[in-house]
């Protein structure tokens, strides 16, 4: 394995008195697909939000592509250029059209010429299979379409890593498939991904590594086959029993 693109080492984080992340360690190699699962409140979102510093960690080391995250503004900027993020609630900008949502960051942050940004954006919309919606406002799209736009928006800066925080859990069941398809496609192209999701079918098919979190700790890290067949940890077993049992 080459040097990891994401390095999380002994990270601790508190919200006031509340200890959310406890000695979290994780390494993600280039091209690796990691699926994170665990009960609600276990700190999954907090962990991946630390990776692009939407949250600050208080101790330990987080580095992306060798750039360590800390108080330094330049480092944070550099990491955010390399990391795309997709949220549970889409967080598209409702006052901008789909195309404007996509071109905003390339033009304003990366300084790409508007023409070029537009053609890149259109290509990405083709890839998420909604080029015909380019002129619409987010409010006029279905949830699945919005989430695909959000994925395209995150891809616009040509990130090296994509973070997904429960991208399908705000969607109606019939729209989950279309978003997972796009994500699978992305994985097939070799994108490095960290996904928080409870879609176990997707995890089985796509993941290289499964991560299970509970109460702020990473309890188990294993390849999917081993993770689903013979989980080492009792808590993992109980959790899997609950969500697969249904």
């Amino acid at each position: 394995m080459s040097t990891p693109i994401i390095e999380i080492k002994d990270v601790n984080k508190w919200y006031g008195e509340f200890h959310v992340l406890k000695d979290v360690c994780l390494e993600v190699a280039k091209g690796e697909k990691v699926v994170v699962c665990g009960p609600s409140g276990s700190g999954k979102s907090t962990m991946i939000r630390c990776i692009n510093r939407l949250e600050e960690h208080q101790s330990g080391r987080i580095a992306v592509d060798g750039i360590e995250l800390g108080d330094d503004v330049k480092a944070v900027e550099a990491v955010r250029r390399r990391v795309g993020m997709v949220f549970q609630s889409f967080n598209l900008f409702p006052h901008l059209t789909v195309l404007e949502n996509l071109t905003l960051a390339p033009v304003k942050v990366a300084g790409v010429a508007p023409r070029e940004a537009e053609s890149t954006a259109m290509a990405l919309l083709e890839r998420v299979r909604i080029p015909e919606q380019a002129g619409k406002f987010p409010g006029q799209l279905s949830g699945g379409q919005q989430q695909r736009v959000a994925i395209a928006r995150a891809l616009c800066l040509k990130p090296a890593v994509m973070l997904f925080d429960e991208p399908t859990s705000a969607l109606d069941p019939e729209m989950v498939g279309e978003v997972l398809d796009v994500m699978s496609g992305l994985a097939a192209e070799g994108m490095t991904m960290i996904c928080v999701t409870h879609e176990m079918g997707f995890a089985r098919a796509v993941a290289d590594t499964m991560v299970f979190m509970d109460e702020g700790r990473i309890v188990e890290v294993a390849p999917p086959a081993q993770f689903f067949q013979s989980p080492a940890n009792e808590r993992t077993r109980r959790f899997l029993g609950k969500i697969i049992g249904h």
Partner: peptide
């Protein structure tokens, strides 16, 4: 979420 999305885009 709007602030976060903007932050995440840099």
């Amino acid at each position: 979420g709007q602030f976060e999305a903007a932050d995440a885009l840099g």
